[in-house]
Design a protein around this nucleic acid. Structure first.
Lengths: 259, 259
DNA sequence: GACTATTTTTACGATTATCGTAAATGAATT
DNA sequence: AATTCATTTACGATAATCGTAAAAATAGTC
């Protein structure tokens, strides 16, 4: 009965971290059952993990309502994680400089576990803004997502294309695999991907992959604007060269750490 | 052999969280052995937990040096934890208002797991400042620590006094249990604890416990200054009433969440 | 470049922590 | 009081983690 635990991977830890991740500004309080449902875990395990967090001070439970909230230790850990993550600092200055100099909103993402993670975002003053999750595994409706897809090898790209939900967000959203494939081909020719109101009406963007020393896409930089300020072709003409240059610089800074 | 796992407490999760907590601004990179030593864990367990974090994107490993650093997911979680922890907002305004109005530096701590955790700190402009860890389990050399100790019941207080390291920090640091006991008695009479350069030369402070609805100390508020600006007795005369009032207000805001 | 010391990774049996059912307790509503 | 829903506890079966030990990779020395 040599049922070897096939991997060096601690599932209990994974589940615990998933629980912590549920809490943020817009979801500061959870019930135990809501957590169990969301993570897909039975009540006993949920109880044990939640209880562990409570005893450690990462969660607090309202004695009456049983609502769970982040505890003080969570704030401490949050501090550490943010200040200890130092790609941030390396990259931030460069991005801020470009944003200030050329009056353009810039976003920088890392690509990890088939997921785009927003690392830094600098907006120009006095412009419309929009909310976006810091993490997204949907790649078909953003310039950055398409930039990364366009730089993957064929096999990986097809794998990810298959997993896109292709939900319609605006009248311009790409809603099928073939259209996406065409769009990605065009991005490869150009050297950058574009977004023409596919995510939010009026929001336009150009994005290019950041390539590791090993030749793989490890992230993306993105310039965003609105059709109130620019037409898409203006944005392309004026800034696409700058975008590529910035991507190369960022690759130089982090290209071997995230190879 | 009913060796019941005595508690609903996930040790694996605890260890994992301890690992994450090692990383911060001043310690951004760790080797696996250093982690194992620091936590007091065998290599295999360390390897499994670290590997779990790597696969989840919370840590990255330099392929050459094997140095471990926080990964992008850590930054995302850090964001969530900080923004999702909302005692912060409840309390911050009150503290900022007092600090601005009376031109005094204010610190607020929660007391959890025998540990003081800095929740908020507002300094007056143009004054000397100092660095302090966000978490401390040493209570004998700060006004806030002594404030909390003074409000504990006798048994708990003795327990904690026994665990103080009594390291000498300045010529005024309290270095033995009996002196501390006398100091705490005085604090109880006064209603607040004082710090007269016991931590840093020239740094003075008064602090008072924040008491939960259940009557237990759940934190402390502290006014700090330097002997360049005030003498300690001036600080006491001018501000001790304000300090107590603030502590009561804060207790009203959070007194039942952290009961 | 061979040798040693150190660190990381893998293998696997022994141990024990976690899972998950089920029942008990508690809180809220009618 | 009865019903419902959520949380907490008990406990046996299961599967994950521990921890020794050996292999592999890396760094340091001569």
């Amino acid at each position: 009965m040599t049922k070897r635990s096939n991997d060096y991977f601690a599932k209990t830890l994974e589940k615990g971290i998933k629980i912590l991740n549920l809490f943020d500004e817009s979801n500061p309080a959870w019930s135990q059952t809501a957590i169990a449902e969301k993570i897909g875990m039975n009540m006993t395990s949920t109880y044990r993990l939640v209880n562990t967090f409570i005893e450690m001070g990462y969660l607090t439970k309202d004695p009456k309502t049983k609502q769970l909230r982040l505890g003080p230790m969570a704030a401490v850990l949050g501090n550490k994680l943010l200040s200890g993550f130092d790609v941030h600092e390396l990259v931030r200055d460069k991005i801020d400089a470009v944003s200030a100099r050329y009056q353009i909103s810039v976003e920088f993402y890392l690509f990890q576990n088939d997921t785009l993670i927003q690392i830094h975002k600098r907006e120009t003053l006095n412009t419309l803004t929009y909310h976006q999750d810091l993490i997204s595994s949907s790649l078909y409706y953003t310039a950055s997502g398409k930039a990364v897809l366009s730089a993957l090898d064929d096999e990986r790209r097809e794998e990810l294309i298959k997993n896109q939900p292709f939900t319609t967000l605006t009248e311009k959203t790409i809603t099928d695999a073939d259209s996406l494939r065409r769009d990605l081909k065009a991005a490869q020719r150009r050297g950058y991907a574009i977004n023409d109101g596919e995510y939010i009406k009026g929001l336009i963007a150009i994005a290019t992959p950041v390539i590791s020393t090993g030749g793989k896409p490890i992230g993306a930089v993105c310039f965003t604007s609105t059709t109130l300020n620019f037409e898409l072709d203006e944005l392309e003409k004026q800034h696409s060269a700058l975008l590529s240059a910035l991507a190369k610089e960022l690759a130089g800074l982090i290209g071997q750490r995230y190879s």
